[in-house]
Design a protein around this nucleic acid. Structure first.
Lengths: 234, 234
DNA sequence: CCCCCCAAGATTGTCGACAATTTATGAATA
DNA sequence: TATTCATAAATTGTCGACAATCTTGGGGGG
């Protein structure tokens, strides 16, 4: 599974392409957070007309990566501590729900496949100790499968097309490569066990706790970042 | 508070106007659920160019009122029983969260104002017995204030600009004027009391239960509707 | 010296037309 | 008669240009 796991959009039209490209650049920070977006400039850069670019901007707004004001323009979302908290509060509630539903609705083979994936991640983790593979792609993959396991299309859309790009943006730009790898693995294991036992209540609780831990982890990095920036400005 | 309580968008541009107009027509059923949308036709009807109309369609898609397929077109969302369940599962989780946060973050005067509003609704309800005023506008108002009381902007946006138009669409088109009025009032009272006592856990629980009851109520109407339609088709 | 106002420049919103794709129509074949 | 394929019609996607709005810079008045 690639880093574009959550973008299941088949790219047919030109604005699709621009949307996907811009999304990657924003998430990775090539287009810096908080910066203003000039329509004529970017249209030229991507080699499309302004109408096509605006179509892409609309979709980026839908997934909270840019913000728009009438007659003023677009700017990339700013990664603040407050927003991080807000997003994670919402994420916790929604993914908790997804987890509870998955305990009822996930097919047996889906559960088995996910357990297998976890084991595979464990191996990979041992081999590439210290690498960010597991934390980045592996973690996303795990969460994504559970979300889909909820079988609630509205919820799936809300999380994969709505929140996760923003979450990834925080993770990538904060440089999430911490020592949480092994801990996260254990937490993942407990969650999948609860799901396998169809214990929705427990699964929800564990997922919420897992996400809280993840939030605390990012927040630490965030403060570190902020401190660095302050020092740099002096 | 009007029925447009959840549309806080100041209408500056032409596409804003089309967006608001179309949203009302879709929610109220003037543009029938499930029907295909012809861009040239509607553009002419609203007296704007296709570009402007498409801008509005993009926003309608963002709040789940229309669905889009590349190179095929737009159609109004279809009100199915499955979707109703999905939406209410999400609503329950999100508004439960909002309620829990409101118990911590709502200012004392906001709480007082809300209690006052409830009493006012009680009076109005007695006067206009059987009218749908309370259930429609009053209920929306109550929920909206709590959502805003969460002070979580992301959550507020997700609910008011995202879910509530779709919820209203179900309620309006199912003709929600039931006998749940007095029951709903008691439930609202219990919720606001929990919030006043800063008991977030209880407030969340009560809100989730309140929403479940509301869902059951709509679902009954929905089945009635479906039965009627079946009979009509024979 | 600061503030307000006005004009010039730049940016966004809107329009009509063209290109690309999908859908409808109908003739030919099995 | 049902099916398939090719062609025509209609719809969506994209473009470049114009209109409306906001921003910037400078000059005049307090």
């Amino acid at each position: 599974m690639t880093q574009d796991a959550f973008s299941e959009t088949p790219i047919t039209t030109a604005s699709d392409q621009v949307f996907v490209d811009m999304r990657r650049e924003i998430v990775e920070g090539s287009i810096v957070q908080g910066s203003k977006i000039s329509e004529p400039e970017l249209a030229k850069r991507y080699g499309v007309s302004r109408a096509t670019l605006r179509e892409a901007l609309n979709r980026l707004e839908s997934c909270y990566l840019v913000e728009r004001k009438a007659n003023v323009g677009c700017r990339v979302v700013a990664l603040t501590a407050e927003r991080l908290i807000e997003v994670y509060q919402v994420r916790s509630a929604l993914e908790g729900l997804a987890c509870r539903l998955a305990a009822d609705n996930m097919a047996a083979d889906e559960v088995q496949s996910l357990k297998q994936l976890l084991n595979q991640h464990l191996k990979t983790q041992r081999v590439k100790e210290g690498e960010s593979y597991y934390q980045e792609a592996g973690d996303l993959d795990f969460h994504y499968r559970i979300i889909k396991g909820s079988k609630n299309d509205h919820l799936i859309h809300l999380l994969s097309n709505g929140l996760y790009q923003l979450i990834r943006m925080y993770r990538v730009q904060m440089g999430m490569v911490g020592p949480r790898v092994s801990k996260a693995f254990d937490e993942h294991l407990a969650i999948i066990n609860a799901i396998e036992n169809h214990d929705g209540e427990l699964a929800e609780l564990l997922m919420k706790r897992h996400i809280s831990a993840s939030q605390a982890n990012i927040q630490t990095k965030f403060n570190l970042h902020a401190a660095q920036n302050e020092r740099a400005e002096q």
